[in-house]
Amino acid sequence: MAMTADVHVRDLRYFVTVAEELHFTRAAERLYVSQPALSKQIRALERQLGVELLRRDRHGVELTAAGSALLPHARRVLEAWAQGASVMAETRAEQRGTLVVGMSNSPGRGGLLPAIRSRFTAAHPEAAVRLRQVSWDDPTAGLADGDTDMAFVWLPLPGQHRYAWTVVAEEPRLVALPDTHPLASRPEIDFTDLAEEPFLALPKSAGPLRDHWLAVEERDGRLPRVGAEIASTEETYEALVAGLGVCLVAVGNVPLITLGGLVTRPVRGLAPSRYVLAWRKGDRRPLVRAYAEACRRVTERVPGMPFRPPDMATTSHDDTG
């Protein structure tokens, strides 16, 4: 079996997803990869194993005899790996008594993090909280691959059914645009007036979150024009100032980009955005529960703070009790 020695878990996950969908485009969407990249990986796996796993023709995709034989074993490997990764994450966390909290940029919002930290530390003085900055390529801020225990993220998340969360803020989406833009003089802008504008977009790997910040749902099936892709606050500011496109931004993030030359305006016709503290469903470790509880208490207790949304502070999507 030397030929299989270097097969990656990722390649097995790609194979299983295509086998389940029997459709490369749908499988690619589920995996948040491009369809050509997925096809290339499957072909590489077939070369490595020396067999054809999937037969492609104009009618679609079907499993070969070899593919059917491999599928149940590949599923078992993926399940065992997921269990192993979960146990390793728990062991790491127990060894260090540290909670790793991910985020794509600092939440700000009126001192949210220090307030949660002081409440959490009062209950668990022996525990440490480590904040980890995660690139915008990963909308789960490290939750998906186990790099973080909890994360401040925006909904919707890829694989959202795998997570529980408590809502930190529900905020309107504003539009940021250069102060020289023809629409900048309006105190409020209707989304229909923005629909044809080029927009700045998150990386494709952000999946449903990219669509949310492009307001795909509000476009009645018309595709957005993407002027540039952005993967950091700095890139967003530079692209806006350069006139590459306009950009939707949550109220709480406005301070991150309102440097010279830009304005933000309210937009009519857009649903609000939801900012949450999320964790993996079924993670019942005491530190995870305690940090979630501290977050809930802080967003309830400080009515003057901008991160307390009306009637939302106690709303959570939480199966951990």
Rank of each mutant, 00 (worst) to 15 (best):
251 V>L: 08
119 R>A: 04
267 V>E: 04
287 L>F: 07
78 L>A: 11
71 L>E: 06
316 S>F: 14
209 L>A: 06
220 D>N: 03
272 P>R: 00
267 V>W: 08
192 T>G: 05
167 V>G: 08
48 Q>K: 10
162 R>F: 13
241 V>G: 03
104 S>H: 09
26 R>H: 02
94 E>K: 00
165 W>M: 08
263 V>F: 15
111 G>D: 00
184 A>S: 09
73 H>S: 12
228 A>E: 07
251 V>Y: 03
37 A>K: 06
303 P>R: 00
279 W>P: 07
154 W>K: 05
77 V>H: 10
66 A>L: 10
282 G>A: 08
41 Q>F: 15
115 A>Q: 12
1 M>E: 09
314 T>V: 10
174 L>N: 04
136 W>A: 02
66 A>R: 08
238 E>Q: 07
132 R>T: 00
154 W>D: 04
53 L>R: 02
196 E>A: 15
174 L>A: 11
186 R>I: 06
189 I>S: 13
20 E>W: 10
25 T>G: 09
172 P>F: 14
180 T>H: 11
254 V>K: 00
271 A>Y: 05
272 P>C: 12
261 G>R: 06
284 R>I: 14
260 G>V: 15
120 F>P: 01
227 G>A: 13
231 A>M: 07
271 A>S: 09
25 T>I: 14
114 P>E: 04
82 A>N: 02
292 A>M: 06
298 V>M: 08
100 V>W: 07
256 L>S: 02
79 E>G: 02
309 P>H: 12
158 P>A: 13
298 V>C: 08
195 A>D: 02
76 R>C: 15
84 G>M: 08
17 T>L: 15
232 S>E: 02
320 T>K: 09
123 A>T: 01
2 A>T: 12
234 E>F: 13
319 D>V: 05
278 A>Q: 01
316 S>C: 12
168 V>W: 11
8 H>Q: 07
54 L>G: 03
8 H>Y: 09
149 D>C: 07
163 Y>S: 03
232 S>F: 11
115 A>M: 02
110 G>T: 04
22 L>H: 02
242 A>F: 06
84 G>I: 05
147 D>A: 11
